[in-house]
């Protein structure tokens, strides 16, 4: 009564969009960059990478990033640390284990994903507590 307008908020929308983007990635639809990580080619969407990583933001935001469709990360992260981060970007779930946490932490630091870095530190701290 008397409201100026009505909004229906679909609370699942952001996770549904992300799920569809992940399906597009898995099927290679509209992926516009190949990342060579430890020699392993990984296809992804620049828009998702730039939205999730300060490192990719600094690379792709400028015109220099426009023509780049293959990107090797020399001296960068190893695949076992990078792949869980790429999955995290597209699923919001970061898979960690005591064996992989140091590699994921190193990759997240390289990719300037500060919030993930903090989560890795918390995980590593917790795994040392008795």
């Amino acid at each position: 009564e008397g409201a100026l307008g009505y909004v229906r908020e679909f609370t699942r929308h952001s996770s549904d969009v992300l799920g569809n983007l992940n399906e597009l990635r898995l099927r290679g639809i509209l992926t516009d960059v190949t990342l060579l990580v430890g020699g392993q080619p990984l296809r992804a969407h620049k828009a998702v990478l730039i939205a999730c990583s300060g490192f990719f933001y600094s690379i792709f935001r400028g015109r220099a990033g426009v023509g780049v469709d293959v990107l090797s990360l020399p001296g960068g992260p190893e695949a076992r640390g990078f792949a869980p981060l790429l999955d995290f970007m597209y699923t919001s779930r970061l898979r960690l284990s005591p064996a992989t946490a140091p590699a994921v932490l190193a990759a997240a630091t390289y990719l300037q994903m500060e919030h993930v870095v903090q989560a890795c530190h918390r995980f590593i701290q917790a795994s040392y507590e008795p």
Binding site: I50, Y57, R93, M113, H115, V116
Partner: peptide, 22 residues
């Protein structure tokens, strides 16, 4: 249990915030 995954919910910000156009 082999393969049992414990999930911890992280409520805080997950990724950087792209600055709004000045």
């Amino acid at each position: 249990h082999e393969g049992l995954v414990a999930t911890v919910k992280e409520a805080g910000r997950s990724i950087h915030e792209i600055p709004r156009e000045e």
